[in-house]
């Protein structure tokens, strides 16, 4: 063996050892992910977090993304529609406190599975890819579309088809589902980078209508009482004869099925009754249109088996 080849062998050995070391680190991380974060969170892998554990601690920690009106902090207080839902449900299940840990929206599921919090309360859409990583509660609300129009709705717009028919200028949020609807319907919509720009476009007349989820538009209208705009009633967009439905729910770790079942049981009592649903989430711009009717289940959303 020459010196060079021996050196090469040593290099490979080192590289191998480093790789092994890293692998061991990764494995160790998974195994020790006990998540004893001050007793706040439950186990991250293997052992399921039970209702009894949480009742004993008296606190459940929810992950949230700081997105109004779903779950966000105001004046240091955790609030929002999904938070209100969680406070109601967990209190009924004998858990007094609901505490929040804020994370990047895209990191919520990762954080949940790493034991950084117990559940995710962020109004997360139930999508097949997400169902592979975690489990969802029953739908908590339906994502419907609404239109923001100038005060008095001069063009008399009601749904996507009315925009096509009247040929008005539409605005949509870049990356939002409404922008896709516009493309599908052959509407040439202007794209705005954030919801505020959409509102501004309607106010200053650059757009006649701004389409977005009803929840977001209602919340914006509530927070801009002086703006000369109004929001139409929410509707389920219909593209090529197919209703475009989406739903949001609470996310649990795959192991915590018992906890999710307990949550679902309480949730059904609230969602099943329009008055009590609006009592809990009505303050946050949610309307009867957002209340799930139970037609499409979480399983169907997870399977992508809709429309």
């Amino acid at each position: 063996m020459t010196i060079t080849s021996r050196r090469k062998a040593a290099m490979f050995a080192t590289a191998g050892a480093v790789a092994l070391g890293l692998a061991a680190c990764g494995g160790g991380g998974d195994a020790e992910g006990g998540g004893t974060d001050g007793g706040d969170t439950g186990g991250s892998s293997g052992e399921a977090l039970t209702l009894e554990q949480l009742q004993e601690e008296g606190t459940i920690t929810v992950g949230f993304a700081g997105e109004a009106p779903y779950s966000f902090e105001e004046g240091g207080e955790l609030t929002g529609a999904t938070v209100a839902l969680h406070e109601r449900i967990w209190n009924e299940l004998g858990i007094e406190n609901v505490e929040g840990v804020q994370a990047e929206f895209g990191q919520l599921i990762q954080g949940l599975n790493a034991g950084r919090f117990d559940v995710i309360a962020a109004g997360m859409s139930i999508l097949p890819e997400r169902c592979e990583q975690a489990i969802f509660s029953d739908p908590e609300f339906m994502y419907t579309t609404a239109l923001m129009v100038p005060e008095g709705n001069p063009e008399g717009l009601t749904d996507m088809q009315s925009i096509v028919d009247s040929g008005v200028q539409m605005a949509a949020l870049t990356g939002a589902i409404e922008a896709t609807y516009a493309t599908d319907l052959g509407i040439s919509a202007m794209e705005v980078g954030n919801p505020q720009d959409g509102l501004d476009a309607v106010v200053n007349g650059r757009a006649d209508v701004f389409a977005l989820t009803g929840i977001s538009l209602n919340w914006m209208a509530d927070n801009n009482p002086d703006a000369p705009i109004e929001v139409t009633e929410s509707f389920v967009a219909n593209i090529d004869g197919v209703d475009q439905v989406g739903a949001g729910g609470t996310v649990f770790r795959p192991s915590d099925t018992d906890l999710r079942d307990a949550y679902n049981e309480q949730l059904a009592g609230i969602v099943g009754d329009e008055a009590s649903y609006l009592e809990v989430v009505g303050d946050f711009g949610f309307t009867a249109e957002e209340r799930p009717t139970g037609e499409i289940t979480t399983e169907q959303f997870c399977a992508g088996d809709i429309g």
Partner: peptide, 10 residues
């Protein structure tokens, strides 16, 4: 580090 030492706070 955050996802390796999951029991220590951020």
């Amino acid at each position: 580090v955050f996802y390796t030492f999951t029991s220590v706070d951020g």
